[in-house]
Design a protein around this nucleic acid. Sequence first.
DNA 1: TCCTTTCGTATTTTT
DNA 2: TACGAAAGGA
Length: 670
Amino acid sequence: MSTLNPRQKEAVLYVDGPLLVLAGAGSGKTSVITRKIAYLIETCGIKAHHIAAVTFTNKASREMKERVGKLVKGPASRGLTVSTFHNLGLNIIRREHKLLGFKPGFSIFDAQDANALIKGLMQKDNLEETDLVDTIQHLISSWKNDLIGPDRAYQQAQNPNEELAARVYASYNRSLRAYNAVDFDDLILIPTLLFQQRSDVLERWQRKIRYLLVDEYQDTNTSQYLMVKLLVGIRGGLTVVGDDDQSIYAWRGARPENLALLKTDFPSLKVVMLEQNYRSTSRILKAANQLIMNNPHEFEKTLWSEMGSGDPLRVIVNRNEDAEAERIAADIIERRLRLQNHYRDYAILYRGNHQSRLIEMKLQVNQIPYKLSGGTSFFSRAEVKDIMGYLKVLINPDDDNAFLRIINLPRREIGPGTLEKLASYATERKVSMFEACGELGLTQVLSARAQAKLHEFSHWLKAVHQRCYQNDPIEVIKQMIRDIDYEAWTYQNCNSELQAERRMANVGFLVDSLQRTLERLQEDNPDAEIDDAVTRLLLIDMLEQQEEDEDDDRVQLSTLHASKGLEYPHVYLIGMEEELLPHRNSIEDDFVEEERRLAYVGITRARKTLTLTLTRQRKQYGELIDTVPSRFLDELPEEDLEWFGRDPGCEVENKAQGRATLSSLRDLLK
DNA sequence: TCCTTTCGTATTTTT
DNA sequence: TACGAAAGGA
């Protein structure tokens, strides 16, 4: 407790009612949450299994678990819930699945699955507007986030497109039910609706969760907020931590106004402000403060630190994006040698993913190791989807979506014609496609050959399913992957041997993760079965875990969005131009405030130095465009900025200097 | 079924 | 310009 400042202490000690902690960037909010959990357990005598801490990402929840584990030793922390919103929702649905009418082992549809399902539904109804699939998917998701059901969506529809989307929404939900599946949004929506409708169930959960802590509160959407409100009830055992200035996810349904709403919903709300920053120099913070002052505020806050004033912020103007990338590469090489530090101390942040390409190229040329955040997530890789498809069907034979993915993979000579007939037969009989495979009525519609193929497949799968619940399930699954000779299939479908090897490594990693997940679940609950583990696995992004093992002295490349929550000694914020940051679409739609927060997030990632770069000309859609410096540059304190290449003349000199430094450094290294 | 060509489009992304 | 998706041909 002695390591906390007075504000932080106040936030930890206040347990008499609902509390809002407005935690500025780098103000030690994770410390506050973890210490508060320790305080609740050790001093307030609240049992760990009555406390839940909720985050948005797996990464955040993993970090929090780790830090609580260090503070609260031994069995006292047993039963503590630290999880993502979605994982909490999943747990609630699992526990209440009977009441909700789900069979155990229900599937979770990710965005891709949902997209495929919507497309399929529209094709089945002979709807022409297949180009609207993405729009409709997005609309359905926002409706779900706003707790609007298909009926109300239809009533509220403003135009024919929305009407169509509402109709698709209804059949989409029916299909999910038929498949014994839920989508990501349902993981929050379904428990929330259940709580609204069944006060007895709500009370049960309120008795279980007596104190709730929520991280990154500004990122909650309407259904998440309602879930929190219902769970907390009148008891008021609630601490939320958030920062309205770091709200950068409004475009995907986050409601930063939920922060202000708390005041209305909990009149006794206490507000604590954390303004001391432990990360950045005061020059960086001054710039951040001055920038964000241009946004309207519900809560005024000003960050300060005792880290010294530090270097001025550099602003480097380059001729074009090529020069920008080169300049940064040279700068990193030069600084690393001069400051005797590591590649991992540097981060390059940008607005759009495409901006990383040129940078990557120049880093490669200069042999600077780098790590790209984001990219395709582990679960969207084809090989992972394939095996997950098998696992899904194994634990939930009703999942037609997964069934269709794997039925002909590897080739089983079951073509589209057969599948179409099977599908319509299954729909007619109101059974899943897998179930339909074994039915006798198929003789009427299918050739003997096609039927034999289907039989063969369904028998085999049924056998695997049974063995899964009798013997060591992981061994059974490994055998299954050998049975289908997935390895041969992979090698056949890859361009290079290396690619195939990587894919098989991913498959191996998937199975290992499944095993670890199962073991972890069985520690808490010896009855846990393979279906628990598979469902759980769907919510974990293993890419993060995987990357941690690799050697990590690399320059970090990241979008501004993905950089939230992280920090680096030296940050380059590139592309400080109008139309890029703020992005042109945001300017048009008047969302500049969120773009400003995005810039704010970027600036506050930096600990020691911050370098802002821009170009005079940039290629846009193949055309060379004269750029305008970002308005955000004008909003920074001029006296703390050091410009390079602002006048056209000295920029040439700059470049020459950069080249010279670079080549002399190269010689030096040889 | 695979490969080529053409066409359209062009933030941010977690679960 | 540069990519991915969809369509068309072998």
